[in-house]
Amino acid sequence: MAKCTEPGTGELLHAYEVGALSEADVERFEIHLLHCKDCFEQVRDFQQKAGLLFEDDEVKEAVRRIDRADWKRDSPTSKLKRYLWPHSPFIFKPAVAYFLVLLLIGPAYLGLRQGDPDHITEFRTVDLTGVRSTEDQVLRISGEPWSKVRFWIGNPDSSSEYHLTVVCSETGDTVLAVDDFTGFDEYGLGEILLYVRKLSPGRYRLTIGSSGGGTAPETIVYSFAVRE
């Protein structure tokens, strides 16, 4: 199969199909389609389906309903439920698999707990990937000494190493710097562990950028707050 001749323009593919581009970008992409066989074939093969997404009122209304429902059901318990039962309550496979794993590791875990008086504590996780709130995610110094911070980078380039820094916006102090981060999962999610107890209260920036090489995307910045 032919490869896109200009991936920077080729990335506009689905935005073009669903009408998310400005007229100038539509023209840029269509001129690209004049010489890029790969993109042209993809657009042509998906034309009928994309047409429904682009202009069908019934489809648009359904998308609106899905989006609204998604906003409402975003509690942690419903997230877990969705994870265990991704499509409907009638598809039990993942849930059964988790149940079996619990059955197998449960006794071992209980044994471990009995033998260790300071039993294993789950780290608190601060999720920076949510887009539904403009408020800062907050890490509490008075809480657990360590916290996990979760972030998302889109499509991580598996051939690239990423440069991560956590910098206090007020003082400019770098509290964490990792040059060779590669721990993104298949969905582009990554996590770091922060020793919160040593941090001063204030706003912090987590910056993720490619350390060079590969085709990794541009720098991404998340912000969060640290409070007493």
Partner: peptide, 10 residues
Amino acid sequence: TPGNFYVILN
């Protein structure tokens, strides 16, 4: 970023 925007769509 716009890059991520296109990634979500694609």
